[in-house]
Design a protein around this nucleic acid. Structure first.
Lengths: 194, 194, 194, 194
DNA sequence: AATGAATGAGCCTTCATTCAT
DNA sequence: AATGAATGAAGGCTCATTCAT
């Protein structure tokens, strides 16, 4: 029995299902039918709400990025010192919400999807800019003019650590991931100041 | 025009073509027919030599990794000091041969393929181990017991930088990539020694 | 034009089409596309309902056998004397429903398919057993202990006559086929009694 | 190193290999490559000698039939009485040479192939006529005018028994097969005389 | 709003056949 | 005489997408 106002619920369910399928498959080679089935709807409805498979994938990517963005924003608001801000940014990158095995698989696949499609590239660009921008602002009070370079380095370190933990043999250890990035950053900070 | 002794030539041509197609598509969604056509052979021959699409892709991944491995080996042999060895490892990661736009796309796609298939996972694991092992040996004379941790960090930094340059808007600037990694490592070395 | 409850209709149409194609080709070398086209549907739908080509073929074989089985059952119910029962069994084997040129071709091809695949072998076994079992029961009142052997012989005679009429130059003459089997059986019965 | 006068040897090897492959597969879905490999030659040579796959199959059918025909001829020559002649014909049908599992599979498949191609139909027709003709001549001294009908019946019984032993669960028991046909014929003979 | 029946394009794969050597 | 490299047509199958209900 169809109901009104189901759209946001359906869309959310489909996006979650898409991420779960990508997680299970480890790739973007997932079928619309399976996504729909997992979301408890028909494949036709998935197209009705999203228009096509690519749109579902893109919506899922957008969702992952926006969840990440929202979390960063929240943590930044609560931060009091520059150090707090840096820690916040790094920690969110490895927060549990971004670290379910599903999500990691989705992230990495979306990353690489940026090589193939313009839409994904745009989304990735926005994420990359925002990460660097956030890091820059947090680091400026600490290292002044070198904030730019350091933000860049840190952003790349975050991605590298994420990639390696995501592909690692064992379950990702996110505390260790944060520690690795922070230690690296600490060393760089000392270098920047001297 | 059948000839004898064509097998290695055909295999190489098909692997090159596969990498080129992956580069052009930005993803592993390439068809055997297109790979074959680019290699100047029929699709049937591609199957004859490799058995199937997955085998072609895997052979391409193996090729990329072994070219990389060979280059590292060569550079390490020529290195005289520990510092030389570290530089060699980092530079090869961003050497032109690994940095044609094709190859970058292939690398990144193969990386993520490790999430989806066991064979790719195994290959990636070998690469990851070797990279860390090489770094460890090079760093040991410089930082002793901390070599382990530093090798790990550096390996992740390399991947992060590679990923970011590969996905970057402009053409990858590999000199800058090397500089970034080396600068980061220098800072960490100083931190490790103090 | 999607409708609900089409499944049984589609399945039946596809099975009929498969038999018709086998009849036209005289072999099992028929394509799913042609079967589907003859059934008035797309090839995709054929796979949707049956899973694959082998399943279509097997379903067709099962259909042929079950139509035959049902007809035997019906005729046996109406039979009053042992003689009636024997006649019923023999006549059904050469009844028009099993004797359209299509069906004959399908029967013979399915027979031989039992040499190649386990599923077909199982189906054939069931048919063979049931035929003998039916004959045995019908013959027991007439020849007692010799029913077993006579049932066996008759079953083989039926197959032989079917095979020869199926492969014959002219259109199969089923009345003559029945007469041949019955005459042979009559001779054997006399032999059995003496 | 190519030799002269190899043609008959190659042809024989390929025909044997074809029959063996058909036996192993239980169907005519065998590849030229496999046949050639089993015969120890290249697939190209198979085409060179036979022209194409269908020709190989047809040659194999012809071979099977001619071996059978030769054996019948030999046995008939040695026969002294009409009874001998009948026994000879029946026994050859179930002689070991025609009863290797390979050959049975080939026979049955060739039988049904007669439904699909004209060439096979012609070959089958020749076999069927000769069998009936032989039986007719052997039976004439025994039953006179009824020889025609009895020959027909016996031929069909032979095919039926062959079919059933070929498809049977256990290994074919050819002595029992002969006994079944002969018993059946004996009953019919008695019927014919009375 | 929602379904799922139905389509058809496109892919991987097999294999008979050809042909340069 | 013989090879087997190479082709390309054809088939099975999947799946995104559409649409009548």
């Amino acid at each position: 029995m169809p109901k009104v106002g189901m759209e946001p619920i359906r869309r959310a369910a489909l996006i979650d299902a898409a991420i779960a399928e990508i997680g299970a498959a480890g790739s973007l080679d997932v079928t619309v039918s399976r996504i729909a089935k997992r979301a408890g709807v028909s494949s036709g409805l998935a197209h009705h709400y999203f228009g096509g498979k690519d749109d579902i994938l893109l919506a899922a990517m957008r969702h992952v990025l926006s969840v990440y963005g929202a979390e960063v924003l929240m943590r930044l608001k609560a931060a009091r010192t520059p150090e707090d801000r840096v820690v916040a940014i790094v920690e969110v990158s490895f927060a549990p919400s971004n670290f379910r095995s599903d999500t990691v698989s989705a992230w990495l696949n979306f990353y690489v999807l940026a090589l193939a499609t313009d839409d994904a590239r745009r989304l990735h660009r926005v994420y990359a800019h925002r990460l660097r921008s956030n890091l820059r602002h947090a680091l400026r009070p600490l290292v002044g003019a070198k904030a730019n370079e350091l933000a860049d380095r840190t952003a790349q370190m975050i991605d590298g650590v994420y990639l390696n933990h995501g592909l690692g043999a064992s379950d990702p250890d996110w505390e260790r991931a944060v520690a690795t990035v922070m230690q690296s950053l600490a060393d760089c900070l000392r270098g920047a100041r001297s």
